[in-house]
């Protein structure tokens, strides 16, 4: 009897807390479909005067450049970042996990240290460097570092995964005359796919949500990402047009939500990687 009461209590508590947790999101979703002058009057998340006007007005974007452009820009940066991370991090991870070279232990320790480094100690010289290369207000500073394996977390994730691949597989391949390059392409990479998926997903989320480096390097409106455009939207329209802003803010979260729905398993794997038997 008391056991079921505990069960009930747990469910009621979780449901209430769950509603409190997602209420801001529901309210934003509702407001994005609500008429502008109703948004601040409605506290309930279902819009009292439903309309699509906010989406139409928001989609028109900033100074003649529509949000479709900003979405495409964001997707382009995300796609290039994913490709860069997959290539550079898997190569480094393969070297650390499977190949012997003199400085392996030392460089592995260096890699672990870079994981904890605040990026602020490198951002100023990096900015000066990219400035000298003429890369300010281009996507190069956002993309090139990804091809140089700066995201050590993914290297770490892949090393952990590759260590779990049976060594016998390597040996069999080696006996058949497989060199380190073919081993990487035909033995290790196909076995590492789950870690590659996790890397893809987290690169997507982090790049999509990134603001600091986009703010730093991008200044032309036609190069704006979704994050930059949302922020600029407030400046251009003043604080007055929350409706179109919420409409575009809601749309900006849709790609993340889709990933969450389809790849939950990989997300959870990525979060717990490093903590479970780190």
């Amino acid at each position: 009897m008391s056991l079921t009461r505990v069960h009930w209590f747990r469910h009621v508590f979780n449901i209430l807390l769950g509603i409190l947790m997602i209420y801001p999101l529901l309210w934003m979703l509702g407001s994005s479909f609500n008429q502008e002058n109703q948004i601040f009057r409605d506290n309930f998340f279902i819009p009292s005067m439903p309309t699509l006007a906010n989406y139409v007005e928001g989609w028109a974007g900033l100074s003649g450049i529509g949000f479709d452009r900003f979405f495409l820009n964001s997707f382009f940066i995300v796609a290039m970042s994913i490709i860069g991370n997959l290539i550079s991090c898997s190569m480094a991870a393969y070297a650390f996990a499977r190949l012997n070279f003199r400085l392996r232990r030392f460089l592995f320790a260096v890699m672990l240290v870079t994981l904890m480094l605040p990026f602020h100690v490198t951002v100023i010289p990096q900015y000066i460097l990219f400035h000298k290369l003429g890369w300010i207000n281009t996507y190069w500073p956002l993309i090139v570092p990804k091809f140089l394996g700066v995201e050590g977390f993914f290297i770490f994730l892949m090393i952990q995964f590759m260590r779990g691949i049976p060594k016998e597989l390597d040996e069999a391949a080696r006996v058949d005359g497989c060199g380190p390059v073919r081993m990487y392409f035909f033995v290790i990479l196909p076995m590492t796919v789950p870690a590659l998926v996790t890397t893809t997903i987290f690169t997507f989320i982090w790049t999509w949500n990134d603001y600091f480096s986009q703010l730093l390097y991008i200044s032309s409106t036609n190069l704006y990402t979704v994050a930059l455009a949302l922020r600029q939207f407030v400046d251009v329209t003043g604080q007055s047009s929350w409706g179109p802003l919420f409409a575009m803010a809601t749309l900006s979260l849709v790609p993340l939500f889709i990933i969450f729905i389809f790849f939950q398993k990989y997300l959870i794997e990525g979060i717990t990687a490093g903590s479970v038997k780190g």
């Binding site: 393969y94 070297a95 190949l99 070279f101 140089l148 394996g149 380190p180 390059v181």
Partner: peptide
């Protein structure tokens, strides 16, 4: 050679 292969794969990083 493996030592060289190691550095080869590590080059981008």
């Amino acid at each position: 050679q493996s030592s060289m292969a190691g550095y080869l794969f590590l080059t981008p990083w």
